[in-house]
Simulated scan of single mutants.
Amino acid sequence: MKEKLSNPELDKIEVMLLLEGIYRKYGYDFRKYAYASIKRRVLHRLQMEGLPTLSALQEQVLHDPLAFQRLLEDLMIPVTEMFRDPDAFLAFRQVVVPALRELPYIRIWHAGCSTGEEVYSTAIVLHEEGLLGKARIYATDISENALERAKSGVLPIERMKQYTQNYQKAGGKASFSEYYSSESGVVLLKPELRANLVFARHNLVTDRSFNEFHVIFCRNVMIYFEWPLRDQVQKLFYESLSDGGFLVLGNKESISFTPMADRYEVWNDPNRIYRKRK
């Protein structure tokens, strides 16, 4: 893409003014997200709208809610799949599930759940381990559109081969096809997988904890945050976990060098699974 901006200092001022305007007008706070990622997505929207400057984009976004929605979808591009990073789900099955067996009731939070594929992956693991009946999985995201897709339980038919391979690598105990039905080119996950799921909007930047959890998944979300925001969210997760609860991050994320680092045990380092010290 040919960039329309040329002065790095001025670019950053304009991008930050745009983000400040979005926060004040619509309540979405991207001001502490990683600048390089935000700038790239803003420039993409600038090109798609056919506008000459970021100032023009800001004017359009602040006066036209539909233009804001288009930019919002660019800023929150979902990247997810069933059993994404299969080794992480295999590790969850092997090193976290045994601890969950000891609990009378299980509460799990998928923070930044996107369109829900990893939420349903967790539900399948719990089902196969005989734990889904006593579990409640809370799945939250900032995007209403992503949540609506997640609630539907619809999967892209063109991804099913990859999803089946991921499931097998993640230690699946059955045939992946047992968990969905396919008709007229539409793949729909079985209703029993959705029975214990709760989908709700939650903003990690501005919202607080809403329960105490035994497991929190937040995978490949904080890579888009600047360090101050990462520390803020890490504190939120720590306060939301029960003693002995598990935090599961993406494989490019870590609690190292955060204020919370010494408050966890490293439970499975390759797959970024940590356990809150009792």
Results as ranks from 00 to 15, higher is better:
Arg275Cys: 03
Glu178Tyr: 11
Lys2Phe: 12
Tyr35Lys: 01
Arg277Trp: 09
Ala91Val: 04
Asp269Thr: 08
Lys278Ser: 14
Leu75Val: 01
Ala88Tyr: 08
Phe257Leu: 15
Ala111Lys: 01
Val198Leu: 14
Tyr35His: 01
Met222Trp: 00
Ser182Met: 15
Ile108Ser: 00
Gln58Phe: 08
Ala135Ser: 15
Ser55Thr: 13
Ile77Ala: 05
Leu100Gly: 02
Met260Lys: 06
Gly171Leu: 09
Gly171Ser: 08
Leu126Ala: 01
Leu193Cys: 06
Thr164Gly: 12
Ala67Lys: 06
Arg41Met: 07
Val187Met: 10
Thr53Phe: 05
Ile22Tyr: 10
Lys169Ser: 13
Arg194Asn: 10
Glu192Gln: 10
Lys151Ala: 12
Gly245Met: 07
Ala200Ile: 03
Met222Ala: 14
Gly130Val: 02
Leu54Tyr: 02
Thr115Phe: 05
Ala34Asn: 12
Val96His: 01
Ala139Ile: 10
Leu90Met: 11
Leu188Thr: 15
Val233Leu: 03
Gln165Leu: 15
Ile142Trp: 03
Glu118Asn: 02
Val42Asp: 00
Asp87Glu: 15
Lys25Leu: 02
Tyr105Glu: 14
Ile106Val: 11
Gln60Pro: 07
Arg149Glu: 07
Ala91Ser: 13
Leu249Val: 05
Pro191Arg: 09
Glu59Lys: 12
Val79His: 08
Ser6His: 14
Ala135Tyr: 02
Leu43Thr: 00
Tyr35Ala: 01
Val205Lys: 05
Asn196Val: 03
Tyr167His: 10
Ala135Glu: 07
Pro259Arg: 05
His63Asn: 14
Gln162Cys: 12
Gly171Ile: 07
Tyr264Ile: 09
Tyr167Trp: 07
Met48Phe: 12
Ala261Gln: 15
Pro86Cys: 05
Glu129Cys: 06
Lys169Met: 15
Arg272Gly: 06
Tyr179Pro: 09
Ala261Arg: 11
Thr53Gly: 11
Ser254Asn: 03
Ile38Thr: 05
Tyr264Ala: 00
Glu265Thr: 13
Arg107Ser: 13
Ser152Thr: 03
Leu204Gly: 03
Glu148Ala: 13
Gln58Gly: 11
Lys151Trp: 01
Thr140Ala: 09
Leu18Gln: 00
Lys161Ile: 14
Glu265Tyr: 14
Tyr274Ile: 11
Arg275Ile: 06
Leu193Pro: 06
Thr206Ser: 13
Arg275Trp: 02
Ala36Thr: 12
Ser6Gly: 13
Glu81Ser: 14
Val186Leu: 13
Pro270Gln: 00
Lys173Asp: 09
Glu158Val: 10
Thr140Gly: 03
Tyr224His: 07
Ala36Glu: 12
Gly112Ala: 13
Phe89Thr: 05
Leu132Lys: 02
Tyr264Cys: 03
Met222Ser: 12
Lys161Asn: 15
Ala139Pro: 10
Phe68Val: 02
Ala200Asn: 10
Met260Glu: 15
Leu103Asp: 10
Phe199Trp: 10
Gly185Pro: 09
